[in-house]
Design a binder for these strands. Structure first.
Length: 400
DNA sequence: CGGTTCGGTGCGCTAAAGAG
DNA sequence: CTCTTTAGCGCACCGAACCG
């Protein structure tokens, strides 16, 4: 049909395209013509004027199309290609926005719970003030009390499993619950293109940092990436799995020795004997949580460790949930207690930088997995106000 | 009443024009 | 040249009219 129109144009108006257009005829190139043009486009999306003329000469099927029309066809073809790319990118952004929205709703929910808890505490405190023998202790907050684990526990699998389950529970309450009063870090506003949401807290024992964000990687890949701490955290000198065994539910429990660089050459290294528990929750989320094996034993090599261990890792880890449309939502919690009391006084300030260490670890972890994701998918994220004009047009078209 | 035809409408695709 | 807009066309869908 289109061919008929094109041929009609040729016979009625010869080579005068403008006259043809004045007649209001609309040309549709035939499937064969489009196929021929597509073949050239695949090789070279932007052919020169010479190449276009050559194309008309060497391809008889295109001989009834004006050079100007060929030029326009390539222009429009490039435009369509760009729109297609933008549409695909917009879908990706949309998925991210949806996931971030979900994340923010959860964060909002958590904050609401925190608010009501604080209101309750406030009421309770007021009540206490009004009683004559008011006791000022314990505002009944639900912050987590960590208990040291003895070597006795560490040396038997049942004891380790019990510690692991306790660690998991405490970690989850920090990652998603109200066990810690998180305060969002200033200047770290959430958004689909930012790294994530960051929060810190000092109102619990030690200092905790928390981050959550979207990563275009599968949960298992993220877990493996984050387990390899020396690759993303420059202060981590070494991490060795001392022993590993399976928990009954398919999870794994590992005993790990982690060496950190010392703040100065004078200070001893901050090392951890850690229990790491990797498991999958009922809702399909993947969890990797850790805690120091502190206390009287401080790990399998207790005597040696006792000299050097200057830090305690309170239940920390990664909660990784698969995201609709690909990728994952990652919650990272680092909860540390650098034991300043156990080092010479002159060095204490170096050990009282728990906040910085926790922040650095958390941010580094999330940045690292995002970097790996970008390298893997090659995704490009536009910053605010930098969308190309074609994107705006496309959005307008979509909204019409 | 069920099936068919026909005109109107909305939408997507795309050639082409126009602005910058 | 890119980007945006305009407009022709095909197609699907819907409802009214028509017919056996």
């Amino acid at each position: 049909m289109a061919m008929a129109v094109a041929q009609h144009r040729e016979s009625s108006s010869g080579s005068n395209i403008n006259k043809h257009l004045d007649n209001g005829k609309y040309v549709r190139y035939t499937a064969e013509q489009v196929e021929a043009l597509e073949r050239v486009y695949a090789e070279c999306p932007k052919p020169s004027s010479l190449r276009r003329q050559q194309l008309i000469k060497e391809c008889p099927i295109l001989s009834n199309i004006e050079p100007k029309q060929i030029k326009v066809w390539f222009q429009n073809r490039r435009c369509r290609d760009k729109q297609k790319t933008e549409a695909s990118r917009l879908q990706t952004v949309n998925r991210k926005l949806n996931a971030m929205n979900k994340l923010l709703m959860e964060e909002n929910d958590r904050l609401q719970k925190q608010v009501s808890q604080l209101v309750n505490e406030n009421g309770y405190m007021k009540q206490q003030l009004h009683t004559v023998n008011a006791s000022t202790n314990d505002a009944s907050c639900d912050s987590v009390v960590t208990t040291p684990h003895s070597l006795k526990d560490v040396n038997n699998p049942a004891g380790l499993l019990s510690i692991a389950e306790g660690t998991l529970k405490e970690f989850l309450s920090k990652a998603t619950g109200t066990a810690v009063d998180w305060v969002q870090m200033p200047g770290m506003k959430p958004g689909p293109d930012s790294v994530g949401i960051f929060a810190i807290s000092q109102s619990c024992s030690g200092v905790a940092a928390r981050a959550c964000g979207l990563v275009s990687l599968e949960p298992t890949k993220i877990a493996e990436t984050l387990k390899d701490r020396p690759s993303w955290f420059r202060d981590c000198r070494n991490i060795e799995v001392f022993t590993m065994f399976r928990a009954g539910n398919g999870g794994t429990i590992e005993l790990i020795y982690t060496q950190m660089f010392a703040p100065t050459t004078l200070a001893p290294a901050r090392d951890f004997w850690t229990l790491r528990y990797t498991t999958t929750l009922e809702n399909g989320s993947l969890v990797v949580c850790e805690r120091s094996l502190s206390g009287s034993g401080a790990g399998p090599n207790a005597a040696a460790a006792a000299q050097f261990v200057r830090a305690e890792m309170l239940p920390s880890g990664y909660l990784i949930r698969s995201c609709e449309g690909g990728g994952s939502i990652v919650h990272i919690v680092d909860h540390l207690n650098l034991e300043a009391w156990s080092v010479p006084e002159v060095l204490r300030p170096l050990y009282e930088s728990s906040k910085v260490v926790a922040q650095k670890m958390t941010i580094a972890a999330l940045r690292y997995v995002r970097q790996i994701a970008q390298e893997t998918s090659g995704e490009v994220v536009y910053g605010p106000g930098r969308q190309p004009a074609v994107l705006r047009t496309f959005s307008q078209r979509l909204s019409r």
